[in-house]
Structures are given as C-alpha cells and as structure tokens.
Simulated assay, not measured.
Amino acid sequence: MEGCQDSLKLDLGDVYLESQGRIVQFDLTLKNICPGKRTALAVILTEIDTSGNEQQRGLKTIKQRFGH
C-alpha cells in the first residue's frame, strides 16, 4: 500500500482443494503501518459452485491498533 492508503483488495487467486475438511493457511507480513491507525484484516473464503455462482464459505476478521 502506498503511504497511508485506506484500503487494499488482494485476490490470492484459485486454490484447488481435492476434498472437504482441508485447511487453507497463508502467511502475511504488514509493513509500514501508519502510527496510531487501527488496522483490520479480513479474509473471505469463497467457492464457485457447479452453476458458476460464487458462494461465501468463511470469513475471518482481525483488528489491531499499531503505534501511539
């Protein structure tokens, strides 16, 4: 993100899971967080069904305040 940009949307692309019950894990490092701003991270897991419609399958949000 440039400077103190308010938001960023990033698509990690397609991940193919061959069966149910799998864990999707990813690592992320946030750098140059603007001091005193609350920062939130949202992860949305979706699936494309057999009709080609996107279905939300999971959502996780994390928020944190950095600096003073």
Rank of each mutant, 00 (worst) to 15 (best):
L45C: 01
K37L: 05
D27F: 07
D27Y: 09
D11S: 10
V43C: 07
L10D: 13
E54Y: 03
V24R: 02
S7E: 13
T39V: 15
L12K: 14
Q55K: 15
G21F: 00
G67W: 02
I33C: 09
L59Q: 11
Q56G: 08
T29Q: 10
H68M: 05
E18A: 07
V43L: 12
L59H: 13
L8A: 14
L41S: 01
I33T: 11
I62H: 14
L12Q: 14
R57C: 11
P35T: 03
H68K: 12
K37P: 00
L17D: 04
D11R: 10
V24Y: 09
G21N: 02
D14W: 13
R57T: 11
H68V: 05
S51K: 12
S7Y: 13
F66K: 07
C34N: 07
D6F: 14
T50S: 12
E18N: 13
S51M: 06
M1T: 11
K60L: 03
T61R: 12
S19G: 04
T61S: 10
K63V: 05
Y16C: 04
I33L: 15
R65Q: 05
G58H: 00
F26M: 00
C4R: 14
E18I: 08
A40D: 15
S7N: 12
E18T: 14
E18K: 14
K63S: 12
L17W: 04
K31D: 06
D49S: 01
Q56K: 15
S7V: 11
K37V: 00
T29H: 08
V24A: 03
R57D: 07
T29Y: 07
Q56A: 09
I44D: 10
R57Q: 15
K9E: 09
L30Q: 04
D14P: 06
I48F: 02
L10Q: 14
M1F: 07
E2G: 05
